[in-house]
Each structure stands twice: as C-alpha cells, then as structure tokens.
Write a protein that binds this DNA or RNA. Sequence first.
RNA 1: GGGAGCAUAGCUCAGUUGGUUCAGAGCGUCUGCCUUACAAGCAGAGGGUCGGGGGUUCGACUCCCUCUGCUCCCACCA
Length: 883
Amino acid sequence: MELPAKYNPSTVEDKWYAYWLENKFFHSEPDEREPYTIVIPPPNVTGILHMGHVLNNTLNDVLIRKARMDGKNACWVPGTDHASIATENKVVNKLKGMGINKEDLTREEFLKYAWEWKEEHGGIILKQLRKLGASCDWDRTKFTMDPDLTEAVINTFVYFYRKGLIYKGVRMVNWDPAGLTAVSDEEVVHKDTKSHFYHLRYYISDGNGNPTDKYLVIATTRPETIMADAAICVNPADERHHWLRGKKVLIPLINREIPVVEDDYVEMDFGTGCLKVTPAHDVHDYEIGLRHNLPVIDIIDEHGRLNEKAQILVGEDRFEARKKIVQMLREAGNLEKVEEYTSPVGYSERTNAVIEPRLSAQWFLKMDALAAEALDAVESGRVKLIPEKYMATYRHWMENARDWCISRQLWWGQRIPAYYLPDGRYVVEPTAEKALEAARKLDPSVTAADLRQDEDVLDTWFSSWLWPISVFDTNRPGHPESAPNKDLAYYYPTSDLVTGPDIIFFWVARMIMAGGEFMDEVPFRNVYFTGIVRDKLGRKMSKQLGNSPDPLVLIEKYGADAVRIGMLLCASAGNDIFYDESQVEQGRNFCNKIWNSFRLVSGWKVDEQLQQTEVDKVAVKWFDNKLSKTIETVEDHYRKFRISDALMAIYKLFWDDYCSWYLELVKPAYGGAVSAQTYMATLEFFGKLLKMIHPVMPFITEELWQAMAERKEGETIMYQRTPVAGQYDEGVIAGFEAAMEAVNGVRGIRQQKNLSPREALSLKIKGEFPSEFLPVVEKLAAVSSVEHTADFGGVAGASFMVGTTEMFIPLAGVVNAGEEIAKLEAELKYQEEFLASVRKKLSNENFVAHAPEKVVAIERKKEADSLSKIESYKSQIAALKNS
RNA sequence: GGGAGCAUAGCUCAGUUGGUUCAGAGCGUCUGCCUUACAAGCAGAGGGUCGGGGGUUCGACUCCCUCUGCUCCCACCA
C-alpha cells in the first residue's frame, strides 16, 4: 500500500463521519449498561460556531467518546436555545433591512418572520459541530422552543405560581426610549460621559407649603427629575444635617413639599451629603423609597419626554428639559453652582440612546428556598465543581440570590400564561381554555374575547434550566409527582456538564434548582468549567476585534483532529485559553507523526522464520511496561478532569516512547525483515495507542484503525474498549531509562566532538548497569563494543555518568585532554559543593532529630552517591593527566 | 467600593497533605543533520535567585502577613 508522506485530513474526515452516522454509532437507547450522559450547553439557535464552542464541544466529545470506549452507554444530547433577546434582535435587524419596523407588525406577524428565520438559520451551528467530529445523538436533537419543551416551560410556570413562588412585582428596568423596549443589563454599555453637577437649593417649608429663608443644597446631574422627587435623604450619622430632622422642604419651581429622611445609603462625603430621592427614575432611590415608604412619581414617558405629572415642561424631551430647567432654576435663584462632572452613563447597545431607568411590572420567582437547596447540593458534594475554586463564587451567589425576574418585554419566547380579566384580575393557567374556565369562576360573564394574555415572554433561562430534564421527558417539569418516563429514569441525572463560569448563576445553579424541585436529584455529578478563549494578546475573542478565527476555516486547513488538539493542549480547567494558531499546527504535526509511524510499520517485510532479536525482545518488554504505566497515569488524569494532562501523557507516549525509542529499536535495517513476533507486538501497541488517543483525535484514529487490519462493515474504533493497564515492573522502566541516559550520553559526545552518528564507538562502563538493556545502547548509540572495567586505563576519551555509573568512550586523538579535564573539574567542584550542603544538613542535629527517617535516609544516600562520584571524577582526572 | 483568584523558563502551564538530584512539561530559541516513516522531521544544547519583602519551621515554589502587578464577578456612587 502506497501512503502519501503527509496525512490529508479532508479526504478522511467526511468519509468517517458519514460512516458513523450511517451506522448510528452515536445513537443511544436505554439498556442494561451503565449510562453516561451529557446534555450540550445549547448554543443560540441562530448562532455560528466560534472558538468557545470549539473548546466546549471538544471537551464534551472527548468525555463522551472516552465513556463510550469505557463500555458505558454514552448519550450526548444536542440541541439549541431560542435565546430570546439575541434572536429577536437579529430578526428585528433583518426586518429593518427589509424596510419593516417591528412596531408596525402584530405579534403574530413578527413571530411568523422569526420562525422563518429560525428555520433558515437554526441548526447551522449543529451542522458545524459535525465538522468538529462531535458524536452527538442527533436523533435526540432538541430546541428550547419545540412545542413539547414549551409546554414543559408553561407547566413549570403554573407549578411555581400555584406553589406561591411566582409573584408580580414592580422593578426598575433599563428602558431604551429610542427602541421603546426594556433591555437587559448585558445590553447596557456604561460610558464615561461629561455632564454637569448642579447644586440646587431646596428651601425649608414653614409647614404650610411656604418657603422660609433656610435651605439645604443637593447636588444632581439630572435636574429635570426634581419634579419626581419624593424626599431628601441624609446620612443619619451626618451631624451637619441633624437640624433637618423632621423638616420638610419644597421642590424648586413647583413648590411641592417633601420630607427629609435618613438612610445609610447616603455617602456623607459625596456631593453635599444631601441626596434628592427620585424613586421613579433611579434604582437606588427606588430602594430608599421602599424603605421609607415614599411615593413613586413617574414623570417621564416611554419616549423619554416629561409627562403631565411633571407639571412643568410637559412634553419636552428629558435633555431639552434639562437645559430649560437649569435656566429656570437659575432665574428662580435655586441654582447655587454648576460643576463639570464626568460619570458613567448607560447607553443602549443597539440604539445608543441613553438608558432611562424605568419602573415596570415584572414577574418574579422567589429564590431563597431554591437557592438554599442549590447551595446544599454543591456543599454536600452531590454536585462537584471543577476546579473547586468556583465554590466560593457559587456560595456567594447563592447566599445573596435575589428574586429572579423572569419576564421579558419581547415576543420571541414562551409567552407568560397569565390571563387578565377586564377588571384587572388575572388567572394563571397552562392554556387559554383553562384560563377561561378559571376566569369564569371569578366572573361568570367573562368570554374568551375578554381575556387578555400577558404580553411578556419568559426569560430564556426559564426554559434552559429545565434542559437536563426536558430533553428526556417534557412532562416531568411542572409535574414532579408524575413517574419519569423510561429515558428520564435511565439517563437522569446526567454525568458531567462542561460550561463556562460566566453562567454559573444563570444556568448551572438554576439547573440544580430545577433538578431538586422536579427530580429530587441533582442534574449532573460534575461541572467542568472551561475558561474564556482569548487571543495571544489576552484579548477576548470578538467580532469587533476580528481576532476570532473561523473554526471551519481552521478545520479545512489543518483538520478537525488538529484543531481539537490545538484547543486541548492549553485547556486546563478554569483557566482562560490563550489561543494561538501554532497550537493547531502542533496538532497537525502530531497527526502527521502518527500517520508516518503507521507508514513505517505498514511497509515492513515480515519474516515468519526470523527469530526475535535480543534488542526486539527488550524493546517489546519495555514498551509493554511503559504502556501500562502510562495508561494508569492517563486514567488518573481523566478521573481528575485533567484532560490536557491526559492528552500530553499520550502524546509523549506516542511520539517519544513509541516513535523515537520503540520503533527505532525494532526498525529492521534497510532491506531487512522483522520477525513475526515483533511485528505483531508492534501492531498491537499501535492499536492500543490509537484507542487511547481516539477520544481526542477521532478521525485519524478511525482511518488508521481501519487500515491496519481487515475490518468488517460496521466495525469501528469508537466501540473498541479503552486499553487496560496490566501489571508493570518499575525495574524494567528504570532499567530502560538508564539505557536511554546512556544513549543520550553517547549522542551528546558525538555532537560535542563532531562525530558522525554512524561511526561505531566502543563504550567502557565502570559500575552497575543492567546488562539486559545493553542492546538498546548498542543499537541506538551505534556502540560496537561494550566493556565492563574497573579502570579506564589512562586513555584519552570522553566520559559521562548514568546515575553513579561511569561511562567512558576512548577517543584517542580526537579529544583534547585539557578540555576534558576542565570539564571534569567543573563537575567535581559542583559535586563537592553539593556534598558540602548535604553534609551540612546531616550535621544539623535538629534536622536529624525532627525530619522523618525516610528523609534522613535519602540525605545519607545522597551523601554516599556524591562521595562515589567525587572519587570517580578524581580518578578520571588523574588518569587523563597521566595520559 | 464588595467578593474571588492569579503571579514558576521567551510563551502556555504542571508542581496533588511542606521533605527523593525538585525547580518540571509542551511549544519556541540555539547548534548539527535532506539518516532509506515523517524537514509538519531527526539528534543535541542552553534557559528560571518560583513577583518583592518579612515570618513560621530542622526544612518553604508549597503555610501565614505585607507590598506590587494583573484578571474575573458583583455594585457602580446622587
């Protein structure tokens, strides 16, 4: 078989992915095996693959493929998230491009467009994941707005409402007066903005609404909101303002009387120490208002204009009004001074309008009980966070959880199942029909046409928190008393979750809450947090910076296996990933190395008659031991989720141990043949290596596994079992390592003395050396003769040490005795200093008395070894001097 | 401002209860090689007072304090 010198992934990957799909290798059904389940962190339905997805899904795929090869029934459920805010934005923008404004559409019309968009773009990302090699059970693909998942969400809402955990409340939202919508905190960008600090006089009232000549001064950046003031607030500890206690003051221009209240919130050394409290137009003021029972006076309409409640400047835009009112205040003598001031102001990410904090009615889910349960799940160890450092963050979140605002002023999403009667009362029911029934109990005259469903939709997380349950059984959420279906009973709880730490609270914690509520069991055992993928300079990858490579282009260029390796090499749990294309190159090079190792072995002539050589025997014996030991190490890494360490251990085993040492040892001479025994062992090792690395590099391993022997249709490396570590002998491994050192020593001397790698040398050994491994040294160091001796005989040559054993290569006429002596003397000096430090330690009575015996013994061994080396150096130096 | 975390070789990171010649790995760098699997390769080499200072201990990369620098989360100051 003629193989190209370089591995070509593009011809291989599509072929095997299609093969896997045809044979339904990814599909799982409950059976008697132990399940291993992962649910995908659902990407946005209209999203496209970026490097973060690559990282996350590579890790997921490694875990799921490993579990599959460990003999578990592995099931990875894929799907997408409807992502209401992001998707609605995209649809709105697309419509804008078509000349259509969302405001001009009915809800139904808009949703029609949205679904069209979803059908067109939804699932692109799932197609892209196939390129990466993701072994998802595509037959189980779910979407958070599938009809049955939506039903689960609605039932969940009704369930919590009936339980008394969902309530309607008022909350300050980020209002975009240009977009006429509330936006989430994430969509508000804070920019330092130059403005002014206006110092205003509020005169003290005489009690009858008339000003006295006494006044206080407040400082504000928003003088146009004074008409909405509900109080003046000072810090109770601020003695400067104690005289204001019990007083009332008058709002300038409109002369409305407001009280002075005291609250710790006010900073004494900021501004004047007096704060105007405007509950309707500032989040903190709203909270102060709640504490002090202050009225909420909303003077700004949805367009950002002053309304009638402002009494003055009605209909003016808030910024126009600001200019005008400053002038009016100045004329009225209330403006004491104006300072330049720069403060952070929130802008809408989309319209760039200044965000107006605005009060509105929202739906909330009570968090305290749910959060306490979710905290316990993690603290008790039922859910493990990896790395553990996220415990602290998690605890902090859970102990300070605020009620969850679950309503969103959007159309794309699950509409809140609250139905209002004409009189303002409402009922919460899963369907309009049931709502009508319930409404008639309140008012028998109500008709279907009278009922008006709440306009808002639910927060996207209100559907994704059910994900580990609802992908298996959509009936269960909202019906914890029902029996779980077969799939849910088998696959739940899932095993591991791989996700980013930025959504610990939004998603991870809430899934734990939903699991506790509906399943009485956590949704997963381990949560592995990835880092954020950054570029080489540490910048977050973003479209704006253009520093994010297109994963599909990378896969095209280097192959999916290479991209996966490139991602994993630097991916330790919880650390940010500094991505650099050179890592993918490293992955590609590794593919090529594997490819070529197969090229070598597959080209060997096998001679059945040939006896296995001594060097082959020792090579096979050593690699067998080394393989077992490495398998053990790798398994340990996997258990601890140290995926990049596991990868590196296999990488070194394959490249260094197998290719550079093992294959070089058993490689027949040009034109020669290899014994059948050695050939079989070599192939067996190769097969085990392929299996070990398959979870990380699925494509090339399938290609070579299929090529290395006759395979039947329907066979795959995917279902081969992970190699199991056998007994191994540390002595064999240590013996071989001594041989490696000897080889390295000889090679080093060749390099230093400019000797050809082919030129045969003889080697003299003084001291212990495991003779079993001498053939290794002879072959790889091109040593023609080995002699054990007690004396190097005063010949010129070069020496080195393997442990405490001296190795010597006679090189009369080649080496300069003076140089060798200088080198030896340097080593002697180092050794003497080392000996001195060891002896100092040993002569320290405290050390000998306190340190464990083992440690002291080690020091004594060091002393003895050092002494022996010193002797050796001295005698070599003497010999050289005599020669 | 509140909370958490990080600082080890040029880069990215290991270093598991303080104790083996423990200061490591991969990549990069340098040197020599087109050696009949692979130049996307082979062989060899150099490189760090473990951020600064102090303390505990027989012994500190490891534990404590402090300073400096950086990152993330939350709140962003009328």
